[in-house]
Structures are given as structure tokens and as C-alpha cells.
Design a protein around this nucleic acid. Structure first.
Length: 418
RNA sequence: GGGGGAAUGUCCCGAGCGGCAAAGGGGGCGGACUGUAAAUCCGCUGGCGUACGCCUUCGUAGGUUCGAGUCCUACUUCCCCCA
């Protein structure tokens, strides 16, 4: 890959920090960024009430954009979500209702507000819903207006399509049209907000390029696309899948403590890369941290966890998470900031089946799993390995008013009678 | 329209003479070793029950059989070839 020397602050930062996979017209975009504020967007689906860390790199790009004095647009896929993602194999999944989608968008908005400054100013971020325009088109109208600009020949040549066909995996007509819808999104944003740049993951390249060309052809306006590399950890695992499934960004779906832990457990080899991508720390500081030898790299991981958690959940929650972790891992003490699970005092007096308690506390997805965990030596009660999950936990197990349950070394829950 | 194939443990891939809770991977979880890392090795990986056990799973619905993922019929979806 060639590395053109960018002049604009935005692209220089993007390149130095590792966000860039490819750009459609690098030199031209660089010049545009240099000339004045540009407007750029990224689209997000509203399939869940929260985004997860997989989206974080995109969110951070918008943040960098704004930091560099440009205007970010967050496009929520209200229209596309309504249709449902055809990539999903299990088509029986019930389609989200209008209300659900709107509710999802509302809670997701809160996340963006942590990373971007919204408002009416020239570089303030705005959020729009593509349902606004996508659901307005009539079929024939849509075909006549946009369909003429896309040839099947070209669409078939796109990597995403080719791959599917080669692997003999079905691709629905709807999915095939995604490209058009996304292109129309870009066109619409160009017309409404003079939006000139669409960013996204490298898997979006084809879709983005189509939008770029549609704008250039129809409106003769400059339009650009920029994609990020697909994120995986140094050892090849997909980013964001861990202990409890997806690493959600909403605090009520994944606690600040767990979020902090997620970053704290980063592989050595990823620390520098993640600090550049997910924190605002200056390059010099990142360079220093990533070079820490041996076990000292753990300090860098703490910085990473602190910075990322603060950005999302605030200073207070971060401090609590860091303190709880320090107490639990470095001093073996308890901290009230650890996740807790409340039980009715009277039930505890009577005795609660340990397997059930572990399950209820969220440390195992079933009682059976709790039992297996115990048999495998991974379950601890008050720091003592407990091979028998069939015993009852009673008030006698309380230490300083709580029972400390641990599944493995990293998942800890305090059971508190109420 | 005709012909031939395919759908498996709801994370993914994938084997499966009529006795199957179903081989093997990957992933995930746990243990050992470490530094809350990686690599490596070991164990676990449908639900419920303290246990003998019970229940629910192989695209959907029926059928044959003591017994069906496995055989038959119809349906659904997908793939390939011919038109």
C-alpha cells in the first residue's frame, strides 16, 4: 500500500492512527479537507437498543472528524432496519416494529452524545434517519430515478456480490438493492447538507463507491469514500465478542466495570493500536506506553481501560471500575463497586441452591452450566473453590454482609441480602 | 416447466449402517502456566433434577416402525443442470 503524504489535519491524523483502509480520491479529498470544513457521514443500523464495540471505530472516526474541524452526520438506518437485514440467515426473526426501531434510535443517540457535540453550529454533529427519505419513494419512481444509473454488470463485479455467488450463498433481490439504497442515502445527504464524504468499514467499500459515483454523475459534485480496516485482535479473534457475548456500549447492557475489564484484558500486541484508535492520547504518549516492556505493559492496558471507559461512561464510573478492579485483582479485597446481585434476606436465611444463585447472578446461563463450572474448578465462593454447586448458600456464608461469587478469575459478583 | 442435490446440536463449519443427546473442528467458558496478556497443555460446551433419571433437539407437517437425524409422502427454502 502506498502512503501518500496528506496535508490536511484530518487525514494526517486518520492515517497516523490507523483508521484508513482505503480512500476513493485521496489527493482530492485531502485538498477539500484543507480548504475548509467538510461534512461526512456514517450509517448505523438500529437493530438493537445499543451499539457495541464493533461500532466504536466508526464512532471514533466521526469524533476525529469533528476534532479536526469538520461536520459529522450520524445516519440511523431507520428505513433499512425496517426492512430487516437480509444477510441474516434465520429469516424467521420477527421484524422490528416501527416503535422498537424508534426506541432503539433514541437510546443509541445517547451513546453518540458522549463522543460528539451535537447542535446547530457549522461543525456540530447532527443525526438523521434515512427512513425520512427512503420510505417515501414509490417503486417505479425509485427505479426510474436511480435504477438507470446502476448496471447489473457492475454490481455483479463487486466483491461482496461475487463472494456470495462463488460460495453459492443466496443473495436476495432486496439485499442486492442495499447498494442502491445506501447510494441514495449519500446522494440525499449531499443534496440536503452538502455532505461530501461517507465513511465505513472495509466491507462497505462497494456500497460507498457506488454512492460516490452516483453523486458525481448526477450532481457533478465532489464525493468521497473512506473505509477502515476490519478490526480483529492480534490473535485473530473478532473484535468485541467476549464473555457475555457482544460488548455493548449502553451502561444498562454492559456495566462500566465490565467495559473497563474488556479493555483491561486487551492482548499485549493490540495495546498500541487500540490506544491510537480508541483514545485521544497524543502519539508521543501512545508510543511510550506501547513500548513498556514485559509485565509493565499492564500499565498501558490500565490507561487504555481508563481512557475508553471515561469517554463512554464518565470519570466517576471509570474511577469506580478501576478501583474495584485494583481491589479485586491486586489486593484481593472486596469493593462495593463490584457488580452486585440482590437476594431477599429471608430466602438466604432459608438457603438458596448455589447453582441457582450463580445462574441468577448472571455468572452462568443455566444451572447446569453453573454445576459444570463448579466441577471444573472454576467456581469460587468467598475465594474458596467450591466443587459442589448443589449445596445451599445460607446466611452463614455471609462475609462482611455479602457472599462473593466468582466464575473464573475475572467474573465476580457480590450477593447482597436485602 | 423438467431433472438432480441440500437443509444437523438456534454461535459457525461439519460427520452421521434405523437404537443418538448425536463424531470432528472452530469459537466460547473453565483449569494449569503467567502479567487480569499471548502461546501451550488439560477439562467442559441442550434444559431440568442431589442422584438411578426425566424432558426438548437434526427445515415444516404427516406416515412406516417396538424404535427415525437416518426410510416414505407432502410442503418450505436454497444450490446445480436442462428449457
Amino acid at each position: 500500500m502506498s502512503e501518500p503524504a496528506f496535508k490536511s489535519e484530518f487525514l494526517k491524523t486518520m492515517q497516523a492512527r490507523g483508521y484508513i483502509h482505503s480512500i476513493t480520491h485521496p489527493a482530492e479529498l485531502d485538498a477539500a479537507c484543507l480548504k475548509g470544513p467538510i461534512t461526512a457521514y456514517i450509517g448505523f443500523d438500529a437493530t438493537a437498543p445499543s451499539l457495541h464495540v464493533g461500532h466504536l471505530i466508526q464512532i471514533m472516526m466521526l469524533r476525529r472528524l469533528q476534532q479536526a474541524g469538520h461536520k459529522p452526520i450520524v445516519v440511523m438506518g431507520g428505513g433499512t432496519t425496517k426492512v430487516g437485514d437480509p444477510t441474516d440467515k434465520e429469516g424467521q426473526r420477527p421484524l422490528l416494529t416501527e416503535a422498537q426501531i424508534q426506541a432503539n434510535i433514541a437510546t443509541i443517540r445517547g451513546t453518540f452524545e458522549k463522543f460528539l457535540t451535537f447542535g446547530d453550529g457549522p461543525t456540530d454533529a447532527i443525526m438523521v434517519d434515512n427512513d425520512e427519505w427512503l420510505s417515501r419513494f414509490g417503486y417505479v419512481e425509485f427505479l426510474r430515478e436511480f435504477g438507470v444509473h446502476f448496471t447489473i454488470n457492475r454490481m455483479l463485479a463487486f466483491e461482496s456480490v461475487k463472494l456470495r455467488l462463488e460460495r453459492e450463498q443466496p443473495m436476495t433481490f432486496l439485499e442486492f438493492n442495499y447498494m442502491l439504497m445506501q447510494s441514495v442515502d449519500f446522494l440525499e445527504l449531499e443534496r440536503r447538507f452538502a455532505c461530501a464524504l461517507q465513511m465505513g468499514g472495509s466491507d462497505q467499500w462497494g456500497n460507498i463507491v457506488n454512492g460516490v459515483e452516483l453523486i458525481r454523475r448526477l450532481d457533478g459534485k465532489p464525493a468521497f469514500g473512506l473505509t477502515t480496516p476490519l478490526l480483529s485482535t492480534a490473535s485473530g479473534a473478532k473484535m468485541g465478542k467476549t464473555v457475555g457475548g457482544a460488548v455493548w456500549l449502553n451502561a444498562d447492557m454492559r456495566s462500566p466495570y465490565d467495559y473497563w475489564q474488556f479493555w483491561r484484558n486487551t492482548e499485549d500486541a493490540d495495546v498500541g493500536r487500540f490506544l491510537r484508535l480508541f483514545t485521544d492520547l497524543p502519539e508521543a504518549e501512545v508510543a511510550r506506553l506501547e513500548k513498556l516492556p514485559g509485565a509493565e505493559i499492564n500499565e498501558a492496558k490500565k490507561v487504555l481501560a481508563n481512557e475508553t471507559t471515561r469517554m463512554l461512561h464518565g470519570a466517576e464510573a471509570t474511577e469506580a471500575a478501576a478501583k474495584a478492579a485494583e481491589a479485586a485483582f491486586e489486593q484481593g479485597r472486596l469493593s462495593a463497586d463490584l457488580p452486585t446481585h440482590e437476594v431477599v434476606g429471608a430466602e438466604l436465611e432459608a438457603g438458596i441452591l448455589l447453582a441457582a444463585l450463580v445462574h441468577d447472578a448472571g455468572l452462568a446461563s443455566s444451572r447446569g452450566e453453573a454445576r459444570r463450572l463448579a466441577q471444573g474448578g472454576g467456581l469460587r465462593v468467598n475465594d474458596k473453590p467450591e466443587p459442589d454447586a448443589n449445596r445451599n448458600v445460607t446466611a452463614a456464608d455471609l462475609v462482611d454482609g455479602v457472599v462473593k461469587l466468582a466464575a473464573g478469575k475475572k467474573k465476580i459478583v457480590l450477593v447482597k441480602p436485602v
